[in-house]
Design a protein around this nucleic acid. Structure first.
Length: 357
DNA sequence: AATTCGGGGGG
DNA sequence: CCCCCAGAATT
């Protein structure tokens, strides 16, 4: 084979053969997932839509749990549209990226009025629906020939073409060209299944990959080195103080506003300023609440993408309304802060039990 | 084009 | 500890 034909092979694989190979593999080895109910290319729009939002930056294994719970709580778009935002966030609690849940509810209110969009452009117009989700729903539920571009596709195509630095546009061009327009829904499900179960980030199973004969990275013998790791921003340390007024079951909670954990409830808190002492921040917080500061309960640390928050948790007293913690949507950070008191109460209970004997 | 937004699983 | 995950909105 000449150098020229090698280059030609890598730029233009035998597309019909490649399509057949992947779809044949998918027909045998594709995953059976709960949002794939209904016929290929004609899945139920509501189920597909919820799944696609839930799975944004969320692994399928974890999404499965939330998916069942969410569909039980909100069986159709009308139930979702009618629900208070706090109920939707409670169903989303612990799943992260909470703007997804808020946008989902807003979009449901639009869909409840106008009906489900049946085109890519129609889906793209809904809040929380971007290029990936619009392509996924319009192809999986409506059979439209739109190629998805997600983390799986990016990795599969990076390896297939031997491109270590694939840009969004680069991936989309190849994805569009490879899409089998006779089975767009199945094609999209297939390439994502391949990325999730065979063409995995660390230890790709090239020995069972239907695309190995077409794959430049496989030919190089270093498939696992494609694509190059993304550069990520450094993690920033963020100290803060919080107060627990009440107990682990009924506590004073504040509604978080802004982009970080916006819409969730949490213990009243304040950031500790640069060079500020923690007790000073506590006094500032208690002054705002008209509360009397109490003893230190402990510290909890929680990392959220690029912030490492260390929360110094104190008890405090104030004449403020408390609310049942179990019904509130809280971040993991606030749950850990509440656990400080829960653990303490349990150990006190254990001491009582010991002395009672 | 770069940042920001959660949280957890796996090497 | 470091990587990534069925991305979207904002700047």
């Amino acid at each position: 084979m000449t150098a020229k034909s090698v280059a030609a092979f890598q730029d233009v694989p035998d597309v019909p053969a490649l399509r057949s190979a992947l779809l044949a593999w998918f027909d045998v080895s594709g995953r059976d997932l709960p949002w794939r109910r209904g016929q290929e290319g004609a899945r139920e729009p509501y189920r597909v839509w919820i799944a696609e939002i839930l799975l944004q930056q969320t692994q399928v294994v974890r999404g499965l749990v939330y998916y069942d719970r969410f569909l039980t709580t909100f069986p159709d778009v009308h139930a979702l549209a009618a629900a208070p935002e706090s109920d939707v966030l409670k169903a989303w609690e612990g799943c992260g990226y909470y703007a997804r849940a808020r946008n989902l509810r807003r979009a449901a209110q639009i869909v409840a009025q106008n009906g489900f969009p049946d085109t890519h452009a129609g889906w793209l117009a809904l809040p929380g629906v971007g290029p990936y989700t619009a392509a996924a729903v319009s192809s999986l539920a409506f059979g439209e020939a739109r190629a998805v571009n997600d983390g799986n596709v990016r990795r599969v195509l990076s390896r297939l073409y031997g491109e270590r630095q694939p840009t969004e546009a680069w991936v989309q061009v190849r994805a569009d060209a490879l899409l089998d327009s006779r089975r767009p829904g199945a094609w999209n499900e297939a390439i994502m299944d391949l990325g999730a179960t065979v063409c995995t980030p660390r230890s790709p199973r090239c020995g069972v990959c239907p695309l190995a004969p077409f794959c430049a990275a496989y030919a190089s013998g270093q498939a696992e080195t494609y694509p190059a790791p993304k550069v990520r921003p450094a993690v920033q340390d963020v100290p803060a103080v919080a107060v627990l007024i009440g107990d682990a079951h009924d506590a004073v909670l504040e509604l978080r506003t802004g982009s970080l954990l916006g819409g969730l409830l949490g213990l009243p808190s304040e950031p500790v300023g640069a060079g500020e002492a923690v007790p000073d921040a506590l006094n500032r917080l208690c002054a705002r609440l008209e509360a009397r500061p109490g003893l230190l309960l402990g510290q909890v640390t929680h990392t959220m993408t690029h912030r490492r928050v260390t929360l110094h948790v104190y008890r405090a007293d104030a004449a403020l309304p408390r609310q049942p913690v179990a019904q509130a949507a809280l971040s993991r950070l606030d749950h850990r802060a509440l656990d400080l008191l829960r653990d303490r109460q349990e150990s006190l209970f254990a001491w009582d039990a010991l002395f009672a004997e």
